[in-house]
Amino acid sequence: MSRIQSVFATLKQQGKTALIPYITAGDPHPKHTVNLLHTLVKHGADMIELGVPFSDPMADGPIIQRASERALAHKVGLTAVLAMVKEFRQTNQTTPIILMGYANPIEAIGAIAFADRAKAADVDGVITVDYPPEECGEFVKELRARDIDPVFLLSPTTEPKRIDLIVNQASGFVYYVSLKGVTGAANLDIVEVANRVASIRQQTSLPIGVGFGIRDAATAKATAAIADAVVVGSRMVQVIEASTDENLLSNVAKLMDELKTAVDAA
């Protein structure tokens, strides 16, 4: 059983929903990233999505684009991100780390080399935004051969037949993107999300994470009531962007505490 699968199994026994914060590696500065990861865990992260900076983040709104630009200004690429995970693992062997990013940094080193290096860094899952299942069969095989979970996105426009195709390739969990649009956009229609999640459940026994549009305790709580995991990205990055070196960790801790309380109360 992978680390992601066992975290979900444990939470299920406890009747709890996972809280998964997202941060971009290297934002606001590479010196903070490992400390941020530990802070997130200390304040309730069950797993962490770690963004790999990319020059052309087409599926992201302005908040996460700026995070990528800040990280790239310090030359944080895939190699540096894997080194950060390795460093984090020196003192944490339990919290799953899911890399989230775009295809080209993986293409640049090749699927096999990437899978080897991700395994060596003890990465648990990979979300590749612009690798739909039709285009990444080999990549998925290489990940699964190393017990790394390939996590796929489902969108409000994904047809049932396609959901089948996706859940057959995915492991760990599937990630329902609850809005049309880019990250950080507009408001969340919780009734609509609940209906979609219920129908996805009929097609898979994989845990379902929900993200895009969750920005406070109220939306986190409402989402936690229907999903197996709540992903908070743009809001987290916004707090990081608005912080100074001095109050960065405490601001992130404060947001995490709010979200954790809300998710646990659902």
Partner: peptide, 9 residues
């Protein structure tokens, strides 16, 4: 077709 799931449909 290397796009995010939101564009596939």
């Amino acid at each position: 077709t290397f796009v995010a799931e939101t564009l596939v449909e």
